[in-house]
Simulated scan of single mutants.
Amino acid sequence: MHSGKSYKISEFLLWTRRNIYITLIISIVPVLLYQLAGFTWIAIPWTVVSLLGTATAFIVGFKNTQTYNRTWEARQIWGAILNSSRTFGTMSRDFIDNSDVTKELVYRHFAWLTALRYAMRDSRAWETSSKTYNKEYQAFYDIPEREKSIESELEKYISPDELKYILSTKNKAAQLLSLQSKTIKEIFVNKDIDSHQFVEMHRMVKEFYDHQGKSERIKNFPYPRQFASINSFFIKLFCILLPFGMLNEFDKLNDSIEGIMKGQMVWLVIPFSVLISWVYTSLEQVGESTENPFEGSANDVPISQMSRTIEIDMREMLGETDLPPALQPKNNIIL
């Protein structure tokens, strides 16, 4: 997540520069053929290009709206995790008189947050963080889940026996919640909590399962490939045809121009074609980077920061003072 006022234009140009290079080549070729080789027949009516551009603008806008909705839903899910975690911490402290058991539940919850965020950072075939322009931009910020192993993080919160068991499971976060449920049952059987408290604490475990399932749904179900593909096809087609449609329009300007530019107006097709194409390709790239809110891109939901915030809040509830520092942005990017 970008935590500053905005991206700098230099950052944006660096991120999208490959599209600029490609559209520059696409624009130069038809102008050379038209102006120098005399192939004036390659020009196509502007109406054709404008209709295609309108259709492309609609589908690009639709995709960007839907991908933003995916990111916003992910933010809402993790906001709910944060609120539910604080409630669970309060219950664990106030319902249970045994401080060791309270700490066990709270620290296992930290382990659940850790396992869940590591699962969310796993790569999927449809994600784009491995694309050159995204991979290159990762040098500007830190991805905590790529810097430390999940084993080294989990061992801070759970016993060696539990760690060994959890590492052997496929869905580590789900199994940690299962252990929470088992511990809560044991507390109830030992009469350390009453039936009402038992129900309330189990309800919190159910809430965490619900939050996890919602988060996994976004992670494991991509933006529909048919929409993503047609969006990409339309933009490529539009960028290729755009300079061909602008040739006649700029050539007509020669009739009303005097001086050094008379007869040379067609060359302006190159910069204007690159500019318009850059707008469309950049919108496509922005939508693509918003599509998967957990993949480790600069526009991700900051689940690592939120997990650290939860840990600080819950450890303060336990009266601890030796707290981990809050995660800080690097170049205004924080995950």
Score class of each variant (00 low, 15 high):
G89S: 14
E162F: 03
T87K: 15
W126I: 05
S159C: 07
E162Y: 04
I150T: 02
Y137F: 15
V106N: 04
E147G: 06
Q175Y: 06
I143Q: 09
E136G: 00
I96K: 07
L82M: 11
T90R: 13
Y157S: 03
A111D: 01
L163F: 04
T102I: 10
Y141C: 12
S129Y: 07
Q175E: 05
R146S: 10
G89A: 14
K131H: 08
A173D: 09
R86N: 07
Y118S: 06
A139D: 02
E153C: 11
R93Y: 07
T128L: 14
D161T: 02
D142S: 05
Q138V: 01
A115E: 00
K170F: 10
D97G: 14
T114S: 11
G89M: 15
F140A: 12
I158W: 00
A174W: 02
S130P: 00
I150N: 04
S123P: 04
K103C: 12
E147A: 12
A174S: 07
L177G: 02
L113T: 02
V101S: 11
Q138T: 01
P144S: 05
I150W: 07
R108V: 03
T102F: 12
K148T: 01
R86E: 01
L116T: 00
R117G: 05
R121H: 08
M91E: 01
A111F: 00
T132R: 15
K148F: 08
T90L: 13
E155D: 00
S99A: 10
A174V: 01
F95Y: 14
I166H: 08
N98C: 10
K164T: 05
I143M: 14
L105D: 01
D122P: 02
P160T: 03
T132V: 07
Y118L: 10
S130C: 00
E147D: 03
I81T: 05
K170Y: 06
